[in-house]
């Protein structure tokens, strides 16, 4: 079966971003960019399913500016077979991304779409669920285990109270949680080979999707600063402070 994997270009997870002083946005000049960590897990899962013989082809898709090609090439180096870039300079929000992905799904007809559970920049946690709604597919969100059997997939989900197992008819949308797998690194020969793999480019207009934002960001600002704390010398002083100063125990 064919699998579609969505990947997003985001600020590297180790970078501590700061809002611009005028509040118009986040300062992304000269900041290291990478594949969203949850999307890496999604690629890894697709590659493992291919190695098990369940999946025959992996298509990696990204939406955004031309530079998102870098992240698609990384996905290709990790084992995806070909890439699709939906190129746009507009800020695309989850609902628009889901509509674009739906259009790609209609072209490619994959049996499964794997996405990360959330992108670490917008922290929305919406796109997979929205894509499932628009395509009418079942959804296995926050997946920590994925087992394909015939026409269905059994997904173990990480939920607030522990874990939940659901059985979904294919085609289905799966979103990855942290503990689904440990993503591999791309080897140098695979990075070289990835340069030769096909990468198609299309636009939202080609796909007939209106990507006008529905939500406007009026302002961004840093969170309230915490007052500087103190270091205590020993446990006795800590207990004293908590009892008499902070009055929390």
């Amino acid at each position: 079966m064919k699998v579609l994997v969505a990947v997003k270009r985001v600020v590297d997870y180790n970078v501590k971003v700061r809002p611009k002083s005028d509040g118009t946005g986040v300062d992304l000049n000269n900041v290291k960019m990478a594949i969203n960590p949850f999307c890496e897990i999604a690629i890894e899962e697709a590659v493992r399913l291919k190695e098990k013989g369940v999946v025959t082809e992996i298509v990696a898709v990204s939406i955004g500016a031309k530079v998102c090609q870098e992240q698609i090439r990384t996905a290709l180096a990790l084992g995806a077979d070909r890439g699709i870039l939906v190129e746009t300079d507009v800020e695309v929000q989850p609902l628009a991304i889901a509509k674009l992905l739906k259009a790609v799904v209609e072209k490619e007809e994959p049996k499964m779409v794997i996405l990360g559970k959330q992108a670490i920049d917008g922290d929305n946690n919406q796109t997979g669920q929205m894509l499932a709604a628009l395509t009418g597919m079942s959804q296995g969100t926050f997946a920590s285990e994925v087992v394909v059997e015939g026409d269905s997939v059994t997904v173990t989900r990480e939920v607030d109270t522990g874990s939940q197992v659901v059985k979904l008819a294919l085609p289905a949308v799966v979103t990855t949680d942290l503990r689904l797998n440990e993503p591999r690194y791309a080897s140098l020969p695979n990075i070289m080979k990835a340069k030769k793999k096909p990468l198609d480019t299309m636009t939202p207009e080609d796909l007939g999707v209106d990507v006008t934002p529905r939500v406007t960001t009026l302002k961004v600002e840093p969170p309230a600063e915490r007052q500087a704390g103190i270091k205590v010398a020993d446990v006795a002083e800590l207990v004293d402070k908590l009892k008499n100063e902070a009055k929390v125990i």
Binding site: P94, L95, D123, N124, A133, T141, V159
Partner: peptide, 23 residues
């Protein structure tokens, strides 16, 4: 914004063709 809310609400939003504002 529990795992249940996060699982269901974006799906409902897309069915209504509206955006969701998270958390």
């Amino acid at each position: 914004a529990t795992t249940n809310g996060k699982n269901t609400l974006p799906r409902a939003a897309a069915l209504l063709d509206v955006a969701q504002i998270s958390e």
